[in-house]
Design a protein around this nucleic acid. Structure first.
Lengths: 170, 170
DNA sequence: CACAACTGCTTGCTATTTGAAAGCGGTTTT
DNA sequence: AAAACCGCTTTCAAATAGCAAGCAGTTGTG
């Protein structure tokens, strides 16, 4: 038997769903890295999530409606994980987390460029990004603007700059 | 030896500081409930935190600069815990958490009234609240407007309404 | 001045969670 | 035919969570 919620406070209930060290990492990778398969999430994880933990989190996130899982038509063993409307609406929360982290933790430049863009773009950019996520993960129409592409381009740019620096230094 | 950070991603680093089931609960109680003493945090906790967990979290939060601890001049054994500038800047994050929880979790009316006010007030209200927290916890001047009082009044009102309902129903 | 209540914790102790590593039956690619 | 890849599961050790009791010192009360 699972125990009921500790209290009806919205902050507490959000914490009970997402307040562990991995759930939001998985959602972040699906959202910003567009990782849709188990192996992608496992092998391309910056933080090195263990396979059993990933399996457990995927199960729990699907059970709580934050991810959906369906078969990949191109491969009998592959599953595709997608964001749902509730997890797409985590964009403002993740943007604030990124903004706070950028100010108060020792972030690396490449990995914080996306947070910087989201912070500077503010709610209008968040909404455009959410619209695009609805296109990529639900069956919403494709919006004109690609925030995802913009974020990805900026990230790749930052990586290239870092690597150029490293190459030049040797 | 404590291991280094898993990655330099701002979301990950924020999660490493606050991503557990209790840290943000403690900060929430200090911030919105103005609980400044260990016993207040322990006995008035809606979620029923255990004494050893509370002691551990207070230590860690002080060590990471999210709370400060000083002696209470009025009582030799009492300690006063205060928010710091970094934890005051968690207001937008907590507001977003409350807003998301209100939409996607089974919140109780009394406990979500504050989240509702913060959501409707938006960034201007958050800033006013943060100014007041700087007055209550740091030594900033007292601002004209009391968001804390407004939130508290609305909460007490909601509790009174709920109790009136209960009394009328019997 | 005796005594109860209160102060911020700590100390066992057990139950749950985390995590690394290896493995598994089946599918697809080479 | 063989190798690589698929989404996990299993095993076991280590870390963490959580309950209940207790503690030395301080303060309020009759």
């Amino acid at each position: 038997m699972e125990p009921g919620p500790r209290s009806g406070c919205p902050i507490n209930l959000t914490l009970e769903m997402l307040g562990d060290r991995w759930s939001l990492i998985v959602i972040r990778d699906v959202m910003f890295g567009n990782r849709r398969h188990y192996r992608e999430l496992l092998n391309q994880s910056d933080e090195g999530i263990a396979s059993n933990i990933l399996a457990d989190r995927l199960k729990r996130l699907v059970a709580s409606g934050l991810l959906s899982r369906r078969d990949d038509p191109s491969h009998k063993q592959k599953a595709i994980y997608s964001l749902t409307e509730p997890s797409i609406e985590l964009v403002p929360l993740l943007a604030q987390m990124g903004a706070w982290g950028r100010r108060h933790t020792p972030v690396s430049p490449e990995l914080s460029i996306r947070a910087e863009i989201l912070e500077k773009g503010g709610p209008p950019l968040w909404r455009a990004f959410m619209d695009e996520l609805r296109h990529l993960h639900l069956d919403a129409p494709k919006p004109e603007r690609s925030v995802f592409g913009q974020l990805q381009a900026a990230y790749l740019d930052a990586v290239a700059q870092r690597d150029a620096q490293t190459t030049a230094a040797k």
